[in-house]
Design a protein around this nucleic acid. Sequence first.
RNA 1: GCUCGGGUGGCGGAAUGGCAGACGCGCUAGGUUGAGGGCCUAGUGACCGCUUUAGGUCGUGCGGGUUCGACUCCCGCCCCGAGCACCA
Length: 900
Amino acid sequence: MSWACQSRRGVAASTVPSLGSSRAVIFQALELFLQIFPSLGTMATLVFQALENGETDSMQEHYPFQAIETKWQQYWEDHGLFATDVSDATDKYYCLMMFPYPSGTLHVGHGRNYIIGDAVARYKKMRGCRVLTPMGWDAFGLPAENAAIKTGTHPRESTLNHIAAMKRQMRAWGCGYDWAREVTSCEPDYYKWTQWLFLKLYERGLAYKKEAAVNWDPVDQTVLANEQVLPDGTAERSGARVEKKMLSQWFFKITDYAQRLLDDLEKLDGWPERVKAMQENWIGRSEGARIDFPLVPRTDGVADREPAIPCFTTRVDTIYGCTYMVLAPEYPGLTELVAGSPQEAAVRDFVVTAGRLSAIERTTEGDKNGVFTGRYVINPYNQERIPLWVGDYVLLEYGTGAVMAVPAHDTRDWAFARKYDLPIRLSIQNPDGTLDLVTMEEAYVDDGVVVDSPPFSGEPNREAIPKMAAYAEEKGFGRAVVQYRLRDWLISRQRYWGAPIPIIYCDVCGLVPVPEEDLPVTLPMDVEFKPSGESPLKQHPDFQQVSCPHCGQPGRRESDTMDTFVDSSWYFFRYLSARDDHQAVDRARADKWMPVDQYIGGIEHAILHLMYARFFTKAMHDMGLVDCEEPFAHLFTQGMITKRSDQDGQLYKMSKSKGNVVSPDALIAEYGADTVRLYTLFIGPPEKEAEWNDAGVEGAYRFLRRVWRRVYLHRAWLPAARDLPIDPGTMQPAERALYRKLHESIQRITRDLEGAFHFNTAIAQIMELMNALDDIPVSADAPAAVRAVYRETLEAVVLLLSPFAPHIAEELWGELGHAPSILQADWPAVNEAALHRDEVEMVLQVNGKVRGRIQVAADADHAAVEEAALADKQVQKWIEGKTVRKVIVVPGKLVNVAVA
RNA sequence: GCUCGGGUGGCGGAAUGGCAGACGCGCUAGGUUGAGGGCCUAGUGACCGCUUUAGGUCGUGCGGGUUCGACUCCCGCCCCGAGCACCA
């Protein structure tokens, strides 16, 4: 909807809220100011004179960003411009920022996220969309609990304080949200439903408890999911070296969804390829075969628990080259396998030594150690007896924890076989037929022809793979299988500040889920934080002691809480029914509003949060809670803002420890939020990293002041110029050119904002348009056509600028005679007629080098253009004495004369 | 090793196969000012030339190729960044 022009200045002055100062006050302030700075000169004097002459009411020459910004922030709030009625989803646009953790203070790097999101939301509103932009808090988490241990302040108190501080910062940035939908994950009205979803997952077998070797963070005193351990074996959050511990823990069965999580990536056209590739890597699907190698029975007659050892391989084609088998040191049943044998002690020692290695040492490619178990297995393809080893290069977590070793065709097996002098046998020959064990210096891992593998010899190895797997299946000792790298998501945390896992342990009934009607399991507030880091829930009798919901006998509550990534895996549904105490998600609303149209956040969540949220959405779909299967239709990951550290001159992402944090507060005080926003968006392509440069902020400030001053200078006649007719047909060349430039700019800026968010080039285009505007001399006495185009252009500049610098745009929109809010105005439309040119400039090239340029009629035909080009003086000079071979004419662009 | 990005002035960065360096920062000169700041004007890739007239050569990590024409497409390298990685 667009606001029809209401009237000229009079109405504008009364409908647009004034800056709040009476003229008398301004006079006094100015006089005082001039006494202190008697030479301030022009600017102050001009304002003074203007006021005295009664020329202006409220507009100042100086750009009063402070007053404007607070005024409009208040206005947007008071008028509910970001409140959205979700009962209607016509032209819906769900624009979501990633759930922020309330750390307390935001820096300009965080700001990039909110500013991009706000610019998108404002643009979409002006395009007529029903935009939903909610905000909330990922409010559970360790930093608050660790702080409580140090300072004694309860995490809830510090968290709520941080939330209030961050809300103030977001407001100061001019970012608008539908605060009525705010959700806070640490409050019972939210975590009740996190617990409820846990119960639903439990009912479906997707939440389960098992004893497993898990990642233990000795600093944070809790277990971690695989996704929260960095490749170097340190904890993503605390930086501590992660240890392996056998513990009984809660998991979510995300592996059940591995294939769907992989397949559906293809549907996500609106996601960056990079993120999809990262998820694909993480899921790590590999196709291969599982083959059972029967154990050669023990000589002492004791039976083995399992008669065969299964192993997974992607290279079943090389199985005739298998000369030994290796088990992981943690292989279950290993002790029984070697019990009573002469190798028992050696194996036990080896397992202990390997267990002492850190995750890094174990998983870094390098020296491989192992020991013979004294046992043998049979290769089912050729009935050969091969030795069974234990080796530290075999991981229990991948495949079956057992590897068939083919040293001739696997680099790791090669190294191991060389070290322990194990036999090596060729089973793949290279295409040249030149492979020879005597001369080989490394494993041959490429393709070739299967050899010495009856009945498969002579087959190209790729073709042999399915045939050999089928053979195993037929004979009953194996089959083709798909293996994933993705493991189940470990969600237990031995910490206080999280959603309690709603489970009760009863000596009689065992593990009993808390009945739905008893939710939420509330976190007790009267707790003591101990320096040991132990969860206060462990020692809290009122919390722990509970009677079993089944039998009424005394039971004990689970004292672990859930990983905070559980909270953030479903919050985007909760925004749609944030205050609903009867259900987690209102299905009708979710079906109308989901998926999120645009999700905006940091690349650091490419795997963790985004994978978990996709899993939750699919699980919720399968439970019949929601229709959608993918939560985020379009994902935009903005690059980090870095800054050179004063300490070592290197570029880092902003962090307190590097001393390179830029706070928005001081910048907003000095330049205003609009300047900070404009600079943040102009700094570079938003998906890429960008280096913060304080000098660049000045440029943005200068530009906004320039726009302000144009409106100020012409404020006397601009609003009235609205009634002047605009007719490109009768314009003089200069206005015609400006008018064309205006519409070219609208076209370009709109294109830059649709799809890819090219804010940097969009802003550059507005700047160019302003430069063109300044080339037109204008005043109240200028011809009507000039004033009309000038006004039209300046007004468009204000509209085009408004998603980026909304406060100044609102203010100038008022000065141009419009009623607020500019958010309700229409985005400028391209006038095709304005783009038309009668004459175009064409570049003249000779052999691809620019030699001149000519003006030709826009509709000139090929022959006419060619003739004009060849007649050009410069072209003549360069083709003189040469033979013209070819003349290429690119209509409206250039002519290239090829000569020899 | 595999996968994905990227390499363009002093700097951040622009360029549906068609004028390389838009826009901004910085810098230089001039104007306004008592001065400073601010603002305005002009210039600003390198090299050569232009004392009246001005243009030329080179240039987008390196080497090839396709094309009338390549920052852009293809092939082979080098370097930087990110993710995964003793994954069988």
